[in-house]
Amino acid sequence: HMTFVALYDYVASGETDLSFKKGERLQIVNNTEGDWWLAHSLTTGRTGYISSNYVAPSD
């Protein structure tokens, strides 16, 4: 899985979204569905959809 880092804080707007904080590391589970990616937070252990605009590759 690809690992990304959050560029900004994000508060989930629905049950399927994932809230995260700036600097949080996220593993991308599925990024084939446009701008919203299914991600797993390595910080909180939660999984949900994130906006690809809010993250950048961590490598």
Rank of each mutant, 00 (worst) to 15 (best):
L18Y: 02
L18A: 04
G23S: 02
P57E: 08
A56F: 09
D35Q: 11
V11Y: 09
D9L: 04
Y49L: 08
V29F: 09
N30F: 10
A12T: 04
F4E: 00
T47V: 11
K21W: 05
V11D: 12
G34L: 07
E33W: 08
N31M: 15
L7M: 08
H1F: 13
V5H: 04
Y10L: 03
D59E: 12
F20I: 06
D59W: 13
E33N: 14
S19C: 05
A56Q: 12
V29H: 15
P57Y: 10
S52Q: 09
R46H: 09
G34F: 07
A39L: 03
E24S: 00
R46E: 09
N31L: 11
V11W: 09
Y8F: 12
L7H: 02
L38W: 09
G14Y: 11
G48M: 04
Y54G: 06
D59Q: 12
A56I: 14
S19M: 05
W36L: 13
D17R: 12
G48T: 02
L42W: 05
G45K: 05
T3E: 11
S19K: 03
L38T: 02
Y54R: 05
E15N: 10
M2C: 12
K22R: 08
T44C: 03
S13F: 11
N31Y: 14
W37F: 06
T47H: 07
Y49T: 04
F4Y: 15
A56K: 11
K22E: 06
G14S: 14
Y10P: 00
R25E: 12
W36D: 04
T3S: 07
R25S: 08
T3N: 07
E24C: 04
V29G: 04
G48Y: 03
F20H: 01
L38R: 02
G14Q: 14
N30H: 11
T47Y: 11
S41T: 03
K21L: 09
V29A: 06
E33K: 11
D17S: 08
L7N: 03
E24V: 01
E33H: 12
E24D: 13
S41C: 05
D35W: 07
A6F: 01
G45E: 03
S41R: 00
V55P: 03
S52L: 10
L26V: 05
T44G: 02
N31R: 13
V11K: 08
K22F: 04
H40V: 15
L26D: 02
T16M: 13
I28P: 11
S51D: 14
E24G: 00
G48L: 02
S13Y: 09
T47S: 08
T16Y: 15
H40Q: 12
I28D: 01
V29W: 12
G45N: 07
T43R: 07
N30G: 15
L42A: 05
E33D: 14
V11N: 10
N30T: 10
D17M: 15
E24N: 01
S19T: 09
Y54K: 06
M2I: 11
Q27R: 11
F20G: 00
E24L: 01
T16D: 12
E15V: 09
V55G: 04
Q27I: 15
H1R: 06
G14V: 13
G45I: 02
T43D: 15
R46K: 14
L38C: 11
L42H: 05
H1C: 14
I50G: 00
Q27L: 14
G45Y: 03
W36H: 11
E33T: 13
T16H: 14
S52N: 06
H1Y: 13
D59H: 13
T43V: 11
S13K: 14
T3M: 13
K21S: 10
F20L: 06
S19P: 04
D59V: 12
S58G: 10
D59G: 12
L7F: 03
V5P: 00
P57W: 11
F4L: 06
V11R: 07
D35R: 08
K21E: 09
T47D: 06
T32Q: 12
F4R: 01
R46T: 05
L42K: 04
N53H: 14
V5G: 00
G14C: 15
T43E: 14
W36I: 14
I50W: 01
S41E: 01
A12C: 05
T47K: 07
M2H: 10
A6P: 00
S19V: 04
N53P: 07
S13G: 08
S58F: 15
Y54Q: 08
D9I: 05
H40L: 15
G45P: 00
D59I: 13
I28A: 11
R46Q: 12
F4K: 01
N53I: 14
V5C: 05
F4I: 04
L42C: 12
D9V: 03
L42T: 06
I28S: 04
D59M: 12
D59P: 14
T47G: 04
P57G: 06
T44S: 10
D35V: 09
V29N: 05
A39T: 04
E33L: 13
I28C: 08
K21T: 09
D35F: 10
Y54W: 09
W37I: 08
L26A: 00
S19Y: 04
G23R: 00
N53W: 15
K21F: 08
H40F: 13
Q27P: 01
W36A: 08
Y8A: 09
S58M: 15
G48N: 00
N31E: 07
T44Y: 02
E24I: 05
R46P: 01
K21Y: 07
S13T: 14
D35P: 08
T44L: 01
R46S: 07
N31I: 13
G23Q: 01
N31K: 14
Y8M: 11
N53F: 14
I50C: 02
T47M: 08
V11G: 04
G23T: 01
I28K: 06
A12M: 04
T32D: 10
L7W: 04
S19H: 03
L26I: 09
E15L: 12
G23M: 02
N30E: 13
L26Y: 02
L26T: 01
Y49G: 01
K22C: 07
G48P: 00
S13E: 12
D9H: 04
K21R: 10
M2G: 09
G45C: 06
R46G: 06
G34M: 07
G23A: 03
K22Y: 05
T16W: 15
F4C: 07
L38Y: 09
R46D: 07
L42M: 08
D9W: 06
E15I: 09
Y10G: 02
